[in-house]
Nucleic acid binder design. Structure first.
Lengths: 112, 112
DNA sequence: CTAATAATAAACCAAATGGTTAAGTATCAA
DNA sequence: TTGATACTTAACCATTTGGTTTATTATTAG
């Protein structure tokens, strides 16, 4: 059983709470990239991006590998599993709401 | 199609990045609760909890309903759907890692 | 009406966050 | 060896966050 540590979820969810970092992860989902590659699309300084990478790394979502003077970054999606598992606990609540909507729409049908 | 706004995900993921707020959501999953009920298990002042509730409310994860002088709070899980959907994009990455692990363990078996 | 209860608002504070620029460290190329 | 390239570190700054205590505002109970 995978028991997640509360502080891990803190780090993962917090890391995901920033659009720049989500964009970086999305880019990494397409494949490995250097720090420079990851920084390019963003209108901010390289150190700023470097900090975001550090946050992702600390959350366990990114792995760096130094290769000469370029640092290659890989997505490490495994921590997302616990995040997804946590969220999944609440699935029935939003599904219930969808069911209610379906019921409502069905009711409308009958009125036609 | 449910197209999620980046800023909504910001709010939802950020809201989930705090253990007190996740605990509150977990409590709400058990059923409606007043602000006082929600505050009780936490070693912090009522205003502090009130602020957390505000954050959850802003993220769309909580709905308040005033009933006399007590405010009843309900879980509103629907925004978690988009969060889960976002994370799901990365599922194959952690599954790949699990596959690799399985392969490795299989290899070990053969060596016995 | 008065007092207690439930919750929010306001004012404040320390620490964390997200950005900047400038300096420093490896590494590769000429 | 001398630059240029690819980053990271350091120092700084403004804003946000997460907490506090002290009012305030509604509402119910006596």
């Amino acid at each position: 059983m995978v028991k997640y540590q509360s502080q891990d979820l803190d780090a993962v969810f917090s890391a995901l709470g920033d659009p720049t970092r989500r964009a970086i992860l999305a880019r990494l989902a397409l494949g490995e990239a250097s720090v420079g590659d990851l920084a390019a699309p963003h209108e901010m300084s390289l150190p700023a991006v470097s900090k975001h990478l550090r946050v992702l790394e600390t959350a366990g979502l990114l792995r760096k590998e130094k290769d000469g003077r370029v640092v290659r970054c890989r997505l490490e999606a495994e921590p997302l599993r616990d995040a997804a598992a946590w969220i999944a606990e609440y699935r029935r609540f939003w599904e219930a709401q969808l069911d209610a909507l379906a019921g409502y729409l069905e009711g409308l049908d009958e009125e036609v």
